[in-house]
Amino acid sequence: MITLLKSGERGRGDYGWLKTRYSFSFADYYNPQRMGVSALRVINDDWIAPAAGFDTHPHRDMEIITYMLEGAIEHRDTMGFHTTLRAGEVQVMSAGSGIRHSEHNPSPDAPLKLLQIWIQPRERGVSPRYAQKDFGDSRGVTLLVSGDGRGESLPIHQDARLYQLRLPAGKQKLELETGRTGYLHLISGTLSLDNRSLAAGDAAVVEGQAQAELRVEAPIEALWFDLP
């Protein structure tokens, strides 16, 4: 079964320095029908204004993934990491027993765009950890994040896998093991998934079937989540 989640139905936030789209209930947006999919709890499309950002704030017991699309962001945290992420890079922060961090756009004139993704961990209270990696040159289907760090992917505390799809026009199979749930988030381009059309910002939940067929109509960038 495939369920489409259209971009126009997502929640919205406009805080001046931050404009965002919420795939699931978050902050001031609450929709009891959209509380996440399996262990996937948050996908926010964030546009952050120049010289602005999130001041120091806490997290715990969440796997937080940042997928950079445009610009750069400066990260500081209580684990001692002070880094900059640029377009094409992915960051994973396991909040575990508790961390505090800040994220700011260091540019005086260039906005930045990113996807903020939260995945619920399989266990609570683990030691916090941090990792980042540049996937900017990756093409095709690339494993970004996994529960065991396979294939040089970034590890999280959950039996979930996150793939980057950068595909030309053509066909591609998405496969799922029995009992798993798939979630496709289309960043750019157009495609059909088992003959259901998706445009940028749309998403699809795949349940109870072993595979789904992508027909890519124009080059796409997308994220594919393989969830427990």
Rank of each mutant, 00 (worst) to 15 (best):
M79S: 04
S94N: 04
Q120K: 05
D28C: 03
G182P: 07
E70W: 04
V205Y: 09
Y30P: 13
G189V: 06
Y15V: 11
S7Y: 12
A131S: 13
S107V: 04
R100N: 14
T66M: 02
G11H: 05
L186W: 04
G53E: 15
K19G: 05
I156C: 02
A110L: 09
I99A: 01
R129T: 03
I220Q: 01
L85D: 10
A39W: 15
A160G: 05
T181E: 08
R12C: 10
R12H: 13
F54H: 14
T181R: 13
L165T: 09
R41A: 12
F54I: 04
A169C: 14
S188D: 09
S38A: 14
I64H: 01
S23D: 01
K113G: 07
G36R: 10
H57G: 15
A160V: 15
G88N: 01
I64K: 02
A27P: 08
A199T: 05
G36H: 02
E175P: 09
E213S: 14
D55P: 12
R124Q: 08
M79F: 00
V141A: 13
R21H: 13
H101T: 01
W224N: 02
L114I: 07
K6I: 10
G11S: 11
Y163I: 04
G36S: 05
A72D: 12
S23Q: 15
R12G: 13
R215A: 14
E177G: 12
P58Y: 14
I117F: 08
Q164W: 12
R100P: 08
E221C: 14
A95E: 03
